[in-house]
Design a protein around this nucleic acid. Structure first.
Lengths: 209, 209
DNA sequence: TGAAATCTAGTGGTCAGACCACAGCGGCCT
DNA sequence: AGGCCGCTGTGGTCTGACCACTAGATTTCA
């Protein structure tokens, strides 16, 4: 029998089937997916194949399993596999550099968008937060990424950031004034100055890319 | 019995053990790792647990398995994270718009980098190609993405492009002159003009983002 | 009646053993 | 030398059996 067209790796078929199922049933984070036994039944594959797929997705942080309860879709924001990849094989030099550079580019893109589209209120609220709270650099840029209304770009930033965090990219001690002056330029819609402030004062770079 | 200290999930222990083993034996991409049966033996766990760990790492793109041969370490540059997250949850409506916008942003980033760092030769070669060949828009920007030396950014572009292509983003009929004039500005290191050309003549937009 | 203890069905976690399909190797025959 | 064959080891898959745990229904008892 075995009518599956794709010639190899049942567990990959299962991953795909799960994807489709989630899509079709519009399952959201927190929702429960059928039990392993039922899936194995529904897809006509052995339970072990289903498990291989589920374990892989679990390691990716896309699902969560609780013994005795079931398997649930997870909030994708927090793929914790990142640490894994980090501890695993992220010691490559070139990758580190690319990572840092890409992160900078994305952040600049976000700044540009914010400078154009964010409301004055949003920016002022962020300024209040900067004054009030104690925060890390990536807390700040997470908020920037959220302010830009492009969810995809935000997600890309989150992913890259979580990778970058595992590496030893040490943030120099940046001061609140720098963030505030950056925000001030954003408020004035002065994209140019904002980016200059970002590069020079926050990322300690010269004015090239 | 079961003396394993971590209270849960043997397959996670196996992942960790594998990590250590790879580290300890300084295994490099291309190297073979022990067979599933031997690992199951060495770690004192069932073969299925070993398999769950291996399948997860395989889905991540960290290892590669060849039936009848064995399991091998892969080039870590190409972990599958972004693709997977993409294929899984990139189906919303709004995402389509974000997709197009992000694609533009990334392309602009690439243009900036190329304007700064690409050699005149590279750019001239590309101009020759534009004149000689018949190409699609994404063929062109793929080459731009490659010219920028940031492999991560290139990959992000490729992914976004593959998704954008499936959606209904129709490319207006762009003419070779437009691409050539873009390249001319790049050759002159005129970032400003290049991006303007990109936005207005190639993407048919006004001069905002 | 209401709360606590208990039972039970269902779920994930793990293992052992059995086949299958395939790749590589070595020996055998011509 | 060249080609055929079968052995061995590897990943791929399935099955059935337990175990550990959870939640909800049931029973028990104050």
């Amino acid at each position: 029998m075995k009518d599956r067209t794709s010639s190899s790796k049942i567990y990959l078929d299962v991953v795909e089937s799960l994807r489709r199922m989630i899509e079709a049933d519009s399952l959201l984070p927190g929702d429960k997916i059928p039990s392993e036994r039922e899936l194995s039944d529904r897809f006509n594959v052995g339970r072990s194949s289903v498990r291989e797929a589920l374990r892989a997705l679990e390691l990716l942080g896309l699902i969560e399993t609780r013994r005795g309860e079931g398997t649930f879709i997870r909030d994708f924001q927090e793929h914790k596999l990142v640490e894994l990849l980090g501890t695993f094989f992220l010691q490559d030099k070139k990758v580190q550099e690319d990572l840092a550079e890409t992160k900078r580019l994305i952040e600049i893109d976000c700044l540009r968008i914010v400078a154009f589209f964010a409301t004055a209120e949003d920016i002022k609220r962020l300024m209040g937060w900067v004054k009030a709270e104690d925060f890390r650099d990536d807390d700040f840029f997470l908020r920037i990424a959220i302010l830009n209304r492009n969810r995809l770009l935000e997600r890309i930033w989150r992913i890259i950031n979580s990778y970058a965090r595992t590496s030893e990219i040490v943030q120099g001690n940046v001061k609140k004034e720098d963030y505030l002056s950056l925000l001030t330029y954003l408020l004035e819609r002065d994209e140019e100055k904002a980016i200059e402030t970002y590069l020079i004062r926050i990322r300690n770079m010269s004015k090239d890319e």
